[in-house]
Design a protein around this nucleic acid. Structure first.
Length: 962
RNA sequence: GCCGUGGUGGCGGAAUUGGCAUACGCGUACGGUUCAGAACCGUAUCUCGCAAGAGUUGAGAGUUCAAAUCUCUCCCACGGCACCA
C-alpha cells in the first residue's frame, strides 16, 4: 500500500463532506439532543490561531463522540465580526470594515474546513450582518423598555489614543486593554445597562450550573457581594445626614470619624457649610485629576483633609466625631462614605495613625489567640481556640493582624474553606467561643503604633495540650479538627511535652486586660464601651446594632455596564432623541408606559418593525476629538423624524460594544435565519440550554457574565425557556509560542496552522494539539514534538496492510477493552492527552501481534475517528465500509474483559519492593505469602526472621513487615 | 496585599479512594537498513555505583507497613483582582 499521503486523503474527504453535509442538523424531537458550543472567533486579519485549533478540536472530538453515541448534535460556528481591529485598519487605510471583515471570514472559513471541524455550516452567523444585529438591537430595545438601559453622565474611563470610552472590564491596571496607554477620566453621557439589578441572581445561580470552581470563584469575586448595613449619621450644624455602608455594624461603637469620597455629592456646593471649603475643594480637584494608577501608585500612603466646622454624631455613642474627605474612599461603592473604625480596619488604622485619631477596640476574640511560634511576625497565621460546651475544642485559623481585623465569630475574616467547614460544624453543634463585644478601651494612636503587640501582651500564656484518653501527646496538626482535650497548667505541660519545632500550641486565655499605661482597665471601661451590646457575639451584635441604628443592605462591587462606544464599527443603538417629546415628558404632558422613555426623557425607540437600524457607509472612520462617533458627521442619517410626534429628531450616534453581539449568539444558532423573531420558542426549547460550552478564562468576567445577564433578562420577559444559558462550562489553556511567550506578530513567534497542515496534515495537527498537554493548562508549541503525532498516524496507516481475520489473544483483548474505556472517559473529562497516549499504547501492542485482528483494528479506527477524522474515514473505507466511520456507533467495552486473570503482584519487605510474583488475580493473602517467603530475593531481606505483619492489596501488592 | 492554579527526567508530560514514580511522546546514544543521507526499524536512556545496592517528585518536617498523593512550616512560577469599608 502506498504511503500515508495526508494531502490527498484530506482533500478527498473534505470535498465529500462539503457535498454531503453530514453535520447539518435539524431539530428532531425523537432524538436526544446535545448542544456543543465553542466561543465564536473574532475574524482577525491574521487568520486562525493555533489556540483556536486547540479549543475547536477538543469540542469537535466531543461532538463527534456524541454523534456516534446517537445524539442529535448541534455544533455551530459563526463570526463575532464587530470589533476594533477592523475599524483601526479602516482608519489607517480607508478600507471599509465590511470589506476587510468579509475577507477575514472567508479566510477563517477556509482554514477551518481544512482542519475538518464538524461544524454545522448551514447555521453560520455573523454579528455584523444586519439580519443578525437587527435582533441585537431588538434585545437592546427590550432592555430599554424595561428600564434597564439608561443614559447617565458619569466619569468614564477614556483612552486618549483609541479615543474611546472603556468599560471597567477593559481597563487593566489603569491602562487601556487594547493599546496599553494610561486611561483618563472624562465626564460623558453614556448608555448604561443595569446589570447590577441582576447581581444577586448572577451570584446565586452559579450554584445551579456546572462550571469549574475557579470560574465560579472569579465570577463571585467580580460580583463582589457583601452584606452589611446602612447607617445614618447626623451632622452637627445642618439638617443633612450622611449615610454610610458597612459590613461591620458590630463595630459602630468604635467608629471614631467619618470619611467621604472626594466625589461625594454632599461636598459639591459646600452643602455642609465647611469653614475650610477652599482647602477641601483643592483636595477634591487634585483627586479628580489623578488617574487610577496614580491613586494606587502612591502606595498605601493615605491622604485626606478634615472638614472643619462640621462634625458627625455617632448614633451609638452620641459622640461628636470629625469628618474627613479622602480618596481612599470610593464614590461608586456603597454610599461613597464610610464610618471609620481604626481598631478593626487596616485602612482606617493607617489613616488614623497618620492623622492621630483615636483607635478604639470593641471586639475581642473569646478564647484568645495562639501563636504557632512565639516569635511570630504580626502577619503570620494566628489561631483562635474555641471551646465547645461539651468540652471539645476547635482550632480556627486566620491570617490577619488580630488587633486590626479582629475575627468576627473567630474566623470570618480571611478564613479558608476548610475553616468555613469547621465553622459550620461549630454553628451546628453550638459552641461558646464566638467573639464577644467587650468593654473597650481607648488608646491614643501614637501609643498604639509604638506598642503593636500590646494586645497580645495582655494575655497570660498557659499551655493547651491535646490529650489522648490514654497517653498525653502534643497536638498533632493532622487531627486538629475536633478532639478531646484536657487543660493543663503551664508547668504540667512543660513536663509532658517536648518542644521540638515549637509544635506546641500556646493558648492565650482571655483575661480582662490588667492595666494600661496611663489608663487602667477600670478607667477605660468608664470611657467607652459597646453599651447595651456588651457580651453579645459579633454576629448577634451585627443584627441588633443594625436593627437599632440602621437598615440591612447588600452591596456589590459589580457596576453597571457602560454600553456606549463612540465608534463606527458596531451595532447602532436604535434610539432617537426628540427635543419636543423630552419637554412634554418632563412636564407630564406625555405619558408613556415605556420605562425607558420615562427614565430617559426624549429618548424614543425606533419602532421594532423598522429594525435593523443599518450602519451607514461613511467616508471617514476617525472618531472626533470631542469623542463623538464618526456617524455623527452624516447628517442625512442623524436627522430623522420622531416616531412618536413626527417632529424633527436626531439618532443616537453611539454604537454598542463588542460584547453585545456575543451576549446572545448561541440563541441565534438554534434558528439562524428566522426573520420573525431572534429564535423560535420551539427551537429554543429543543436546543437549550447549551450542554457544553468551552472558552477561554479571559472571558469569565466579561462575556460569560454579560451573556448570563442578557439570558436571564430574556427569560424574565418570556423569550427563552431556561434561566441559565450554559449547563456546563469548561476552559482551555493558552497555546504559547515555543519560547513560552504569548504568540504575537511583533515577537514574530506566531505559528500558522496552514503551514503545519501543509507539512504534517490536519489530522497530525489535531492529534498534536490534543496530545501536547493538559487541555486546561497553557502549553508551549513545539515543532519538534509534532512529528511524534505524525509518526503515530503513519504507523496506523501502515498497520492497515496487515489486517486479517484473526482471533484476539487474551491479554490483548483486555488492553483493547481497557483502551475503549480509557479513551471514552478521558474525552468526557477533557483529558485528551492521555486519551491519545492510550491510543498509542494500543497501537504499540497491536504492532507486536503477528497479524492485526480485523475487529481490533476497526475499534482502533473508531476510537481514532474523532481525533483524526480524515485518516479514519479513509482507512474505514479501505476496510470495505460503505458508510462513514463517523456514523458508526461508538465502541462499547466489557468490564469483565478488562480484568486480567493473572497479574504481577509486587512483594515488598518493610515497604521496599524486593520481588514480583506472577499469579492469578484472585490469589489469597495466605497463598501469596507462602510463595513470597520461598523467593530468594525475599529471604535475603527477611533474613528468615519472623513476619510481624502482612499488608495485602488484592491483585496488586503484598508487604511483609519484619 | 487578597483569591485561584501549579512546581515530577535534557524537554512536553503520566501516575491523586496513599500501593512498582517517570506511562505516552520528543530529544539523545549505539546498532540495523542505505553508495551516502533523510526516512524507517531495533536497543538503551532519572542520579550515584563495576556490582550488590542506595538515592530521587520545589525545600524542610510530620503521620503511615507504604507518601508525588494526606498534615504542618516555607520557597518559587503563572493567572485574576486590587484602598470594594
Amino acid at each position: 500500500m502506498s504511503n500515508y499521503d495526508h494531502k490527498r486523503i484530506e482533500a478527498k474527504w473534505q470535498l465529500r463532506w462539503e457535498e454531503e453535509r453530514p453535520n447539518d442538523v435539524l431539530e428532531d424531537p425523537d432524538k436526544p439532543k446535545q448542544y456543543i458550543l465553542i466561543e465564536f472567533p473574532y475574524p482577525s486579519g491574521e487568520g486562525l490561531h493555533t489556540g483556536h485549533v486547540r479549543s475547536y478540536t477538543a469540542l469537535d472530538i466531543v461532538a463527534r463522540k456524541r454523534r456516534a453515541e446517537g445524539y442529535n448534535v448541534l455544533y455551530p460556528i459563526g463570526w463575532d465580526a464587530f470589533g476594533l481591529p477592523a475599524e483601526n485598519f479602516a482608519i489607517k487605510t480607508g478600507t471599509s470594515p465590511q470589506i476587510t471583515t468579509r475577507k477575514s471570514i472567508d479566510t477563517f472559513r477556509e482554514q477551518m474546513k481544512r482542519i475538518g471541524f464538524s461544524f454545522d455550516w448551514h447555521r453560520e452567523i455573523n454579528t455584523s450582518d444586519p439580519t443578525y444585529y437587527q435582533w441585537t438591537q431588538w434585545i437592546f430595545l427590550q432592555l430599554f423598555k424595561h428600564g434597564l438601559a439608561y443614559k447617565a453622565k458619569m466619569p468614564i474611563n477614556w483612552c486618549p489614543v483609541d479615543k474611546i470610552g472603556l468599560a471597567n472590564e477593559e481597563v487593566i491596571e489603569g491602562k487601556c486593554e487594547r493599546c496599553g496607554s494610561p486611561v483618563e477620566k472624562r465626564e460623558k453621557e453614556q448608555w448604561m445597562l443595569a446589570i447590577t439589578k441582576y447581581a444577586d441572581r448572577l451570584d446565586r445561580d452559579l450554584d445551579t450550573v456546572n462550571y469549574p470552581e475557579r470560574i465560579k470563584v472569579q465570577q463571585r469575586n467580580w460580583i463582589g457581594k457583601s452584606e452589611g448595613a446602612e447607617i445614618e449619621f447626623r451632622i452637627t450644624n445642618t439638617e443633612l445626614r450622611i449615610k454610610v455602608f458597612t459590613t461591620r455594624p458590630d463595630t459602630l461603637y468604635g467608629a471614631t470619624y467619618l470619611v467621604l469620597a472626594p466625589e461625594h455629592p454632599a461636598l459639591a456646593n459646600n452643602e455642609l457649610r465647611i469653614t475650610n471649603y477652599e482647602e477641601v475643594r483643592k483636595y477634591i480637584e487634585e483627586a479628580k485629576q489623578k488617574t487610577d494608577i496614580e491613586r494606587t501608585a502612591e502606595g498605601k500612603e493615605k491622604t485626606g483633609v478634615e472638614l472643619k466646622g462640621v462634625r458627625a454624631i455617632n448614633p451609638a455613642t452620641k459622640e461628636e466625631i470629625p469628618i474627613f474627605v479622602a480618596d481612599y474612599v470610593l464614590v461608586h461603592y456603597g454610599t461613597g462614605a464610610i464610618m471609620a473604625v481604626p481598631a478593626h480596619d487596616e485602612r482606617d488604622f493607617e489613616f488614623a495613625t497618620k492623622f492621630n485619631l483615636p483607635i478604639r477596640q470593641v471586639i475581642q476574640p473569646v478564647f484568645g489567640i495562639e501563636n504557632r511560634r512565639p516569635d511570630a511576625e504580626a502577619r503570620e497565621t494566628v489561631t483562635a481556640i474555641a471551646k465547645r460546651k461539651d468540652g471539645k475544642i476547635l482550632i480556627l485559623k486566620w491570617k490577619k493582624q488580630p488587633w486590626i481585623s479582629a475575627p468576627i465569630g473567630g474566623v470570618d475574616a480571611g478564613e479558608t474553606s476548610e475553616q468555613a467547614a469547621e465553622r459550620e460544624l461549630l454553628e451546628e453543634t453550638g459552641y461558646c467561643g464566638k467573639a464577644v463585644m467587650v468593654s473597650p478601651i481607648t488608646i491614643e494612636s501614637h501609643f498604639f503604633a509604638e506598642h503593636k503587640n500590646v494586645w497580645r501582651a495582655r494575655y497570660d500564656h498557659p499551655v493547651l495540650l491535646e490529650v489522648d484518653e490514654q497517653s498525653p501527646k502534643p497536638i498533632s496538626p493532622k487531627e486538629d479538627a475536633l478532639h478531646n482535650v484536657q487543660w493543663m497548667t503551664y508547668e504540667e505541660a512543660l513536663q509532658a511535652v517536648n518542644f521540638k519545632n515549637n509544635r506546641l500550641a500556646l493558648e492565650l486565655v482571655l483575661h480582662k486586660p490588667h492595666s494600661y499605661e496611663g489608663v487602667s482597665y477600670a478607667e477605660a471601661e468608664q470611657i467607652i464601651n459597646s453599651g447595651e451590646f456588651n457580651g453579645l457575639s459579633a454576629s448577634e451584635a451585627k443584627e441588633k446594632i443594625t436593627e437599632t441604628f440602621g437598615v440591612k443592605k447588600i452591596s456589590y462591587k459589580l457596576r453597571d455596564w457602560v454600553f456606549s462606544r463612540q465608534r463606527y464599527w458596531g451595532e447602532p443603538i436604535p434610539l432617537v432623541f426628540c427635543e419636543h417629546c423630552a419637554k412634554r415628558i418632563t412636564k407630564g404632558e406625555l405619558r408613556s408606559t415605556n420605562e425607558g422613555e420615562v427614565r430617559n426623557p426624549g429618548w424614543v425607540p425606533v419602532p421594532e418593525e423598522s429594525l435593523p437600524v443599518e450602519l451607514p457607509v461613511v467616508e471617514k472612520y476617525q472618531p472626533t476629538d470631542t469623542g463623538e462617533s464618526p456617524l455623527a458627521a452624516i447628517s442625512e442619517w442623524v436627522n430623522v423624524r420622531c416616531p412618536t410626534c413626527n417632529g424633527p429628531a436626531k439618532r443616537e450616534t453611539d454604537v454598542m460594544p463588542n460584547w453585545a453581539g456575543s451576549s446572545w449568539y448561541f440563541l441565534r444558532y438554534s434558528n439562524p435565519s428566522n426573520p420573525e423573531v431572534f429564535a423560535s420558542r420551539e427551537n429554543l426549547e429543543y436546543w437549550l440550554p447549551v450542554d457544553w460550552y468551552n472558552g477561554g478564562m479571559e472571558h469569565t468576567t466579561l462575556h460569560l457574565l454579560y451573556s448570563r445577564f442578557w439570558h436571564k433578562f430574556l427569560y424574565d420577559i418570556g423569550f427563552v425557556p431556561t434561566e441559565e444559558p450554559y449547563a456546563k462550562r469548561t476552559s482551555h489553556g493558552v497555546v504559547l509560542a515555543n519560547d513560552g511567550q504569548k504568540m504575537s506578530k511583533s515577537l514574530g513567534n506566531v505559528v500558522n496552522p496552514d503551514e503545519v497542515i501543509g507539512q504534517f496534515g490536519a489530522d497530525s495537527l489535531r492529534i498534536y494539539e490534543m496530545f501536547m498537554g493538559p487541555f486546561d493548562q497553557s502549553v508551549a508549541w513545539s515543532m519538534d514534538n509534532i512529528v511524534g503525532s505524525r509518526r503515530f498516524l503513519e504507523r496506523v496507516w501502515k498497520l492497515a496492510d496487515s489486517v486479517k481475520e484473526a482471533p484476539l489473544p487474551e491479554p490483548f483483548e483486555a488492553l483493547l477493552h481497557r483502551s475503549i474505556k480509557k479513551v471514552s472517559e478521558d474525552i468526557e473529562e477533557m483529558k485528551f492527552n492521555t486519551a491519545v497516549s492510550q491510543l498509542m499504547i494500543l497501537l504499540n501492542e497491536m504492532e507486536t501481534l503477528p497479524d492485526t485482528p480485523q475487529e481490533a483494528f476497526r475499534i482502533l479506527i473508531r476510537l481514532l475517528a474523532p481525533f483524526a477524522p480524515h485518516i479514519a474515514e479513509e482507512l474505514w473505507e479501505r476496510l470495505g465500509k460503505v458508510s462513514s466511520v463517523h456514523k458508526a456507533p461508538w465502541p462499547s467495552f466489557d468490564e469483565e474483559k478488562i480484568t486480567l486473570r493473572s497479574a504481577i503482584i509486587v512483594v515488598q519487605v518493610n515497604g521496599k519492593v524486593r520481588a514480583q510474583i506472577e499469579s492469578s488475580t484472585d490469589a489469597t493473602e495466605e497463598e501469596l505469602k507462602e510463595l513470597a517467603l520461598k523467593l530468594p530475593a525475599v529471604l535475603k531481606w527477611t533474613g528468615g526472621g519472623e513476619v510481624k505483619r502482612t499488608i495485602f492489596v488484592p491483585g496488586r501488592l503484598l508487604n511483609l513487615v519484619v
